[in-house]
């Protein structure tokens, strides 16, 4: 079939396919992630291959649809079974809740409820307020009634001043950290995000971190600053 004929055929098929459909243009997370059927909304789960690995951890969305990422393109989304975790939105308290980054304490205590150590010590995950992961630590001791845990501080040497979220999970019988307890927040201080030229824009957000007269990448051409996020150069139009 000649190219021109193919294209015309395609055109007709396009028209037949789309005509009359009102497609709401929204992102379906299942396009770029693996998805499974119903589960408890917002709960964590893990899917397990027949050989026991890898164990993909995902989360159910508001509609109870499970979304997860596989760790390697050599694997498909297929799995042999699902283990569902419990959902916990408890408000926990961290102590200390304010941390001097120049002399951080070696450990901290988190109090609340439901921090069970039956299948192993609970884990504390640290996140920036915008969701970036900082590090995880395992509790070193826990109350038998689940009301407190003590855990070492993660490496905070590259952390800047600001609020951080701590999320506590405890393991299932098989050791998957998908039972969520809740979260606490801490206020870290004494190491501000550098603003080398003092123009009010942190270096990481400043196209010209050493030129106080410019910060936006369209102020005089391209963006000098590409050391931190090389994937985000300045695209000017």
């Amino acid at each position: 079939m000649r190219l021109r004929t193919k294209l015309l055929l395609l055109l007709v098929l396009c028209y037949v396919s789309f005509n009359g459909h009102c497609i709401v243009n929204s992102i379906d997370p299942c396009i770029n992630h693996c998805c499974i059927g119903a589960g408890q909304p917002f709960g964590l789960f893990t899917v397990i291959y027949a050989d026991g690995s890898p164990n993909f951890v995902g989360r159910y969305d508001a509609n109870g649809r499970g979304i997860y990422d596989k760790s390697s393109l050599t694997h498909s989304c297929d799995f042999t079974r699902i283990v569902q975790g419990t959902v916990g939105n408890n408000s926990l308290s961290a102590s200390p809740s304010s941390i001097d980054l120049l002399s951080p304490p070696s450990s901290g205590t988190i109090t609340g409820q439901g921090m069970w150590a039956t299948n192993g010590m609970p884990r504390v995950d640290y996140f920036q307020s915008n969701g970036y992961f900082i590090g995880s630590v395992s509790a070193t001791s826990a109350a038998s009634d689940g009301t407190w845990i003590v855990a070492p501080q993660p490496d905070l040497s590259s952390v800047y001043s600001g609020f951080y979220q701590l999320k506590v999970t405890y393991p299932t019988e098989e050791g998957f950290y998908i039972n969520e307890v809740g979260s606490a927040s801490i206020d870290c201080w004494n190491r501000d995000n550098p603003d080398s030229d003092g123009d009010g824009w942190n270096d990481v957000d400043d196209c010209y971190p050493y030129d106080a007269s410019r910060w936006y990448c369209n102020q005089g051409g391209g963006c000098e600053y590409q050391t931190y996020r090389e994937e985000m150069p300045c695209y000017e139009y």
């Binding site: 396009i31 992630h33 693996c34 998805c35 499974i36 059927g37 989304c77 297929d78």
Partner: peptide, 8 residues
């Protein structure tokens, strides 16, 4: 077991 997705 087959997952519901990826939308195929």
């Amino acid at each position: 077991m087959k997952p519901e997705k990826p939308l195929r």
